[in-house]
């Protein structure tokens, strides 16, 4: 397949080039209604520097996959490794941008974004300077002293993104970060994300239910099946980089990607689970 984007990064030897690796991972949740199996024999390799999007019907294990990567959930069987070693506790080598608003309402935007630096013991003066630059980068310059409840939904997302990027984690996990936003704002934030990510070479795992968003942003899109989830389709996206977010959907090949992904999800939706 023709892939004009492949010149951007050079993948080294297979193992060393892996950022996150799932080996035969099973995950069973027990609840009052009984047990339900979310993942069974799940294998996944995320390469370093790759932008991977995960799509799938609701109720498939998308968020579970991210929580396993973050070490917030532990696999029932199999192993999940990050940067070459198995994840045993909460994984602080990643940044996790959740759907849920986790800004602390009692802190100003500046203090919220400074928390990861404070944890790392960075002196106050440097903290302030780095926070100021980061806020300007995400378009929140001038809102340092606002409290989260004084910001709009989009601005809170920006603040959360700033808080995740400021400590420079090599891997970013994003769980439908732009889900509840309106269409135009979504495109603006996607463009900002592309701009901020482009030069960094960070690995991104991006969960979304929006196929257009997945194709627009990602190097590779995987489709999960219904529970117990497996990878139904693994689609490399052949759209060159750097990409213009609002142009990507007119790129040659976009339509084919869309059709293939859509049918994979649709068939998944009609399928009866065992």
């Amino acid at each position: 397949m023709e892939n004009p984007g492949s010149t951007r990064r050079d993948f080294g030897p297979a193992r060393a080039a892996l950022d996150i690796e799932f080996r035969k991972v099973g995950k069973v949740f027990a609840s009052r209604k009984g047990q339900f199996e979310v993942l069974r024999d799940f294998d996944l390799e995320v390469r370093k520097g790759e932008f991977l999007a995960i799509v799938g019907p609701s109720g498939s294990g998308k968020s579970t996959v991210l929580n396993l990567m973050a070490g917030l959930d532990t696999p029932t069987s199999g192993t999940v490794a990050c940067h070459g070693h198995p994840i045993t506790g909460v994984n602080s080598e990643i940044g996790y941008l959740t759907q849920h608003d986790s800004l602390m309402p009692w802190l100003t935007v500046e203090d919220n974004v400074a928390v990861p630096l404070e944890i790392r013991g960075i002196p106050k003066a440097e903290r302030r300077e780095r926070v100021r630059r980061m806020l300007a980068d995400v378009g929140l310059g001038g809102f340092e002293h606002h409290h989260p409840n004084q910001l709009s939904g989009g601005m809170r997302k920006r603040a959360m993104l700033a808080r995740t990027l400021i400590y420079d984690p090599p891997t970013l996990l994003m769980d439908e970060p732009f889900g509840p936003l309106d269409a135009q704002l979504k495109v603006v934030l996607q463009a900002d994300l592309m701009r901020l990510w482009n030069a960094t070479g960070k690995t991104v795992v991006f969960v979304t239910h929006d196929i257009v968003e997945a194709i627009t942003l990602a190097d590779r899109v995987i489709v999960l099946s219904h529970r117990p989830s497996r990878i139904k389709l693994d689609e490399a996206i052949a759209i060159g980089r750097p990409r213009e977010v609002h142009e990507a959907r007119f790129a040659p090949g976009f339509e084919d990607h869309y059709r293939r992904l859509w049918s994979a999800i649709e068939i998944g939706g009609a399928e009866k689970t065992p």
Binding site: A70, G71, L72, V90, N91, S92, H100, W106, P116, Y167
Partner: peptide, 29 residues
């Protein structure tokens, strides 16, 4: 105290004391 907020802080590398100081205590206040 918001479980998700605590998780977010732990992923940033916060220890028990920081979690108390930044999330548990202010939200219990």
């Amino acid at each position: 105290a918001d479980r998700k907020m605590v998780d977010a802080l732990r992923i940033m590398g916060a220890g028990r004391f920081t979690v108390h100081r930044r999330v548990t205590f202010p939200s219990a206040l």
